[in-house]
């Protein structure tokens, strides 16, 4: 059986106490929420924190506030909480959809929203046991010097594989980060760096406490995920799209995000901008899809062939936009995702 390395265990009851612990431990500690990302990484010795700080006793992290003015979602809500809550509809559909297709039912019962947002970047050269990584002399992200995905690269190319972040970015979400020295709020789209190692701007002493959403009244949104099987698999491409339409079907505002196609979720700003003031017809959808797909830079470090993933990006943007327009995409969705 694979065993965890030894660690010190802390279980604070308040956010303040947690912030104090992180402040004291600096980079030696890692917050533990659902554990579904961190514990496998620890078993493979990709991450070996000296201290694990459990967040599950901090009640304020599991609250939900949904109102006319927007929403505040505690970071420790489980993905099952979100996927199964009928309040996450209409404007929030993309988030509920994204949460409902993460991994497996059991993992969704454990994994949290904050954990999925902070998900470690993934790579076929990195998500391997200590022994396997030794046999390639390790990689840039952990213990090595070469990025085997792109040996000439000075940057790690591990892939952002979160489902909820692209969805939340399409919904214009912000995150609240709390540390001993205070707190800050930033757009989720600015949380990530274009770097597989230093992929997130959350400092080691900060806790991602909350996701904040403005009112999405009048918005429609959707999330499309590409993966080999109907469950288990991380996305190898995802497209989240949200739009607000005028009465005659012209796009008043739109946001498109592309996930799992780079070190961070990508905002397809140019495509979204192009759609503003236009109706969603075959021509505009095709143009937006082409423009959006241009930003996807899949590499050979996930499942599926990278050129094919790149090619499918435009298709997925098309599907998402057609769904927002009101087309019945259920047959395509069933074929591609095996989900009803």
């Amino acid at each position: 059986m694979m065993r965890l390395p030894l660690f010190e265990f802390r279980a604070p009851r308040t956010l303040e106490e947690a912030a104090r612990i992180l402040d004291g431990e600096k980079t030696n500690a890692m917050p533990l929420a659902g554990g579904t990302d961190l514990l496998p990484n620890m078993k493979r010795r990709q991450q070996v924190p000296r201290t694990l700080m459990s967040l599950r006793h901090i009640q304020s992290l599991s609250h939900v506030e949904l109102g006319h003015s927007g929403a505040r979602l505690g970071a420790c809500l489980t993905l099952a909480d979100i996927a199964g809550d009928p309040r996450f509809r209409n404007g929030l559909t993309a988030l509920a959809q994204a949460a409902s297709v993460v991994a497996t039912p059991q993992i969704r019962n454990m994994a949290t929203l904050g954990g999925n947002i902070c998900l470690d970047t993934r790579c076929n050269y990195y998500d391997q046991s200590y022994e396997w990584r030794k046999s390639i002399n390790f990689c840039l992200k952990k213990d090595g010097t070469t990025c085997w995905v792109a040996p000439g690269s000075s940057k790690c190319m591990a892939v952002s594989s979160t489902d909820t972040a692209p969805a939340l970015m399409a919904l214009g979400a912000r995150v609240r980060l709390v540390s001993r020295s205070g707190e800050r709020e930033m757009p989720l789209s600015e949380l990530y760096n274009n770097d597989g190692i230093d992929y997130i701007k959350r400092r080691p002493d900060e806790i991602l406490a909350e996701v904040v959403l403005d009112s999405l009244q009048g918005w429609k949104s959707t999330y499309w995920k590409l993966r080999r099987r109907g469950s288990f698999d991380f996305p190898v491409l995802s497209v989240a799209a949200a739009a607000r339409f005028s009465k005659n079907g012209v796009v008043e505002d739109a946001r498109i995000a592309v996930g799992s196609a780079a070190c961070r979720p990508l905002v397809a700003a140019e495509a979204a901008e192009y759609l503003q003031g236009r109706p969603l017809n075959q021509e505009t959808i095709a143009e937006a899809a082409t423009v959006a797909a241009r930003i996807a830079k899949p590499l050979d470090n996930t499942d599926f062939d990278m050129t094919w993933r790149k090619r499918v990006t435009a298709e997925f943007v098309t599907y998402a936009l057609r769904e927002l327009r009101g087309d019945d995409m259920r047959p395509v969705n069933l074929l591609l995702t095996r989900h009803q």
Partner: peptide, 26 residues
């Protein structure tokens, strides 16, 4: 791995996640 850099020849993903076996949905 690229021959000029390494002699490594590894199982691409010796895991039950990345070795794809059909799920109940498939």
């Amino acid at each position: 791995l690229p021959k000029r850099l390494s002699h490594a020849l590894v199982h691409k993903f010796p895991s039950i996640l990345e070795y794809k076996s059909p799920t109940s949905l498939d």
